[in-house]
Amino acid sequence: MSTPGYPSVLSALIILSLSLGLLSIFVGPAGLTVAQVIAALSGTSGDGDPASIIIWQIRMPRMLMGALAGAALGLSGAVLQGYLRNPLAEPGIIGVTSGAALGGVVAIHTGLAATSLFALPLLGLLGSLITVLIILGLAGFRGSPLTLILAGVAVTSLASALISLVLSLSDNPFALTEIVFWMLGSLQDRSLEHVGLAAPPILAGLGLLLFTSRGLDALTLGEYGAQNLGIGLDRLRYLIVAGVALAVGSATAITGAIGFVGLVVPHLLRPLVAHRPGRLLGASLFGGAALVLAADIVVRLLQPEYDIKLGVLTALIGAPFFFYLVLKTRRELIS
């Protein structure tokens, strides 16, 4: 076949995300020179040197958090699309990120986040868990793409309304600005502490989701076909619910809701893996990381003149894809 082999696709994506990760270390409003960055990276500049602090304590955690969040969103998108056999399924569109953001908002504004470090990722996880369950309950397995999107719209609006409500009740002067953070997502000032909090649950979630590849492959034949191939659909469902909640929930509690990554990445990569849902997983994991890293690099190139939120960029890239996919699946949507 004319498509490249899976190992070369996967290694290309790994190299791409690693290079973008490295590049993002060189970019930032402080405008450090290449020489300064290299000196800081190689440890030849002093400990108290501003460049060294900027690289290791500000840009490095920001890069790591971006890569983790991107991987979580890309992989979750690929898994949800494979499971629901619907190219429009995406953590943002079906409301999982909004649920997670609501969890994050509640953690911070009830003061729980200040009491216990783990409250933030935990409530994000809980928020996404509840939304995933609502979505699967409402639109579930046999739902048409239309039901899924309607359910997603309802859940997203409800979660957004609750976010605004919590922020308004908190009577804090930053409420409006904070809503923007949660709705559009940002990697601004994410620290190594954040990475430490979010990385274990995100990695656990990614691990669970990678175990779904056989089941998703088998689902190409529909539910009965998959069951006949020895796939336990209940077990698959638990894996997906837990994996998406862990990965998207903990990432979103730290970065806010970054949209469309889970839609665009699997869509772009599907032809490269010959449309095989199982192989799409590894590819979307690295593809998601690469997309978020690239978007954050653009965000920082525009600073300080423009303060563009990460989610604005991903939406600018993602929304046209969404329109295109809606057009493509229109017949199915109407029926």
Partner: peptide
């Protein structure tokens, strides 16, 4: 699954994978 192969009445392919990949699913 190793002992019984079932051919459902509804015969839909949800993703556009190659014929060979699809037949390989039988080896899952």
């Amino acid at each position: 699954a190793q002992k019984t192969a079932y051919l459902p009445q509804q015969r839909r392919f949800h993703w556009d994978i190659s014929v060979r990949s699809l037949i390989e699913l039988g080896r899952l």
